[in-house]
Structure formats: structure tokens, C-alpha cells
């Protein structure tokens, strides 16, 4: 009885961690499978990409302008 308890704890650990990992591993596989299926058969209507690219560049310009302003402010 004395010795049993810790061994029992390790058994719990083995079973528990095994189940958690198995569950999540299967889940990962299913997610990947699902994303393949949804992208293949139910593609989302794409927003026009050029716009977003432009927006990104605009963002970069804004960031550049702001950081330039900050450095200028720090120097002065």
C-alpha cells in the first residue's frame, strides 16, 4: 500500500499526458485536414489583393514618417 501510491501517481501521469497529447495530435491532424477541405471546396471570396498591398505600403510610409519625427524630436 505504501509504495503503491507514487506508482499510482505515475500511472495517472502516463495515462493523462498520453490522452492529452493523443487528443491534441489528432486535433492538429483534423484541423489541417479541415483547412485543406474548406480551402478546396469552400474558398472565401477573395478581397482584391492589390488594395491590401497598397495599404501595407502606406502603413510603412506612415511608420517611417512617425519614426523620423520621433528621432527628430529626440535630437532637438
Amino acid at each position: 500500500m505504501e509504495e503503491n501510491l507514487i506508482i499510482e501517481g505515475f500511472k495517472f501521469m502516463g495515462l493523462g499526458m498520453g490522452t492529452v497529447f493523443l487528443f491534441l495530435a489528432v486535433l492538429i491532424l483534423m484541423i489541417n485536414l479541415m483547412s485543406v477541405i474548406t480551402h478546396k471546396f469552400f474558398p472565401e471570396p477573395k478581397a482584391n489583393n492589390t488594395n491590401t498591398a497598397n495599404a501595407k505600403q502606406d502603413n510603412k510610409k506612415v511608420i517611417a514618417a512617425i519614426s523620423a519625427a520621433i528621432t527628430h524630436h529626440k535630437q532637438s
Binding site: I6, G9, F10, M13, M17, V20, F21, L24, I28
Partner: peptide, 26 residues
């Protein structure tokens, strides 16, 4: 999705502590 494995590994805290608790009893 593979980052889900990290969420699994962290559950080691549960079972490690379980062993710790029974060891304290022991």
C-alpha cells in the same frame, strides 16, 4: 495548429504535481 502541442505539454504541470502530492503523503 502545431502550437497546440505546447498547450498539451504544459499539462505536465498537472500530473507532475499529482505525483508530488502523493509523494508528500508517502
Amino acid at each position: 495548429p502545431k502550437t497546440a502541442l505546447l498547450g498539451g505539454a504544459a499539462q505536465f504541470g498537472i500530473f507532475g504535481t499529482l505525483v508530488g502530492a502523493v509523494a508528500l503523503t508517502q
